[in-house]
């Protein structure tokens, strides 16, 4: 069960009308290394991971949903007042004919989300290493979006999200240390 707080984890402000940025941001919305993939991956893996790190996966999955909400807000703000012509110039004509300016779980190239993006191997090391890789890929994606964006306010929010990826990666790396640790077990040599 969740308790919803009706505010964003970090403020989202967009200062320039640039629908092309919305197209780029869709990579973090419905892309392979996006926030939806991250949230669903951890939320599902948490059932079959050692007890000591279930809470970590639960907490990070929950936070990923609040990141998804921030990305959705950015995309919505960047497209809500765009005319069909402006969307076409932004490379979003195909999106428009299918969805109008509704949000959808596509990546930046318009490919719809698939569960094949994520995995649950049931092996704690395999799953945690996938999670670490996912965080680093999401961090890199934020960097490439920041490189493409000239919007200082949007970049401010994106920097916050990138920093969170670094922290998540750190915590998953610590989770690996926890599940591989021998302490508390009798060792016979």
């Amino acid at each position: 069960m969740w308790v919803y707080e009706k505010k964003l984890q970090y403020p989202v402000k967009v200062s320039t009308c640039n629908p092309t940025l919305a197209k780029y941001l869709m990579e973090q919305y419905g892309g392979a290394d996006g926030e939806l993939a991250a949230a669903l991956r951890y939320m599902n893996q948490r059932y079959t991971i050692p007890d000591k790190v279930i809470g970590l996966l639960n907490d990070i999955a929950t936070e990923e949903f609040s990141h998804l909400e921030m990305i959705a807000t950015m995309i919505y703000k960047l497209t809500k007042d765009a005319t069909p012509q402006q969307l076409r110039e932004a490379g979003l004509a195909e999106h428009y004919v299918s969805h109008d300016s509704a949000l959808f779980y596509n990546n930046a190239a318009g490919v719809p989300f698939t569960a094949a993006y994520i995995q649950a191997k049931g092996d704690p090391i395999a799953d945690l290493y996938e999670d670490i890789a996912a965080e680093e890929k999401a961090r890199a994606t934020y960097q490439w979006i920041i490189d493409m964006s000239d919007d200082p306010d949007l970049n401010d929010s994106l920097r916050f999200l990138r920093e969170r990826e670094i922290i998540h990666s750190q915590r998953f790396r610590e989770a690996v240390e926890i599940v591989k640790d021998d302490r508390g077990q009798k060792k016979i040599f």
């Binding site: 490189d147 920097r159 922290i167």
Partner: peptide, 20 residues
């Protein structure tokens, strides 16, 4: 910490486009 995205100074890593 709320602004930067981490409580821990050691983990803070500012990023800007290095090519600009």
């Amino acid at each position: 910490a709320l602004k930067k995205g981490t409580l821990w100074k050691v983990f803070y890593d500012y990023y800007d486009n290095p090519y600009r």
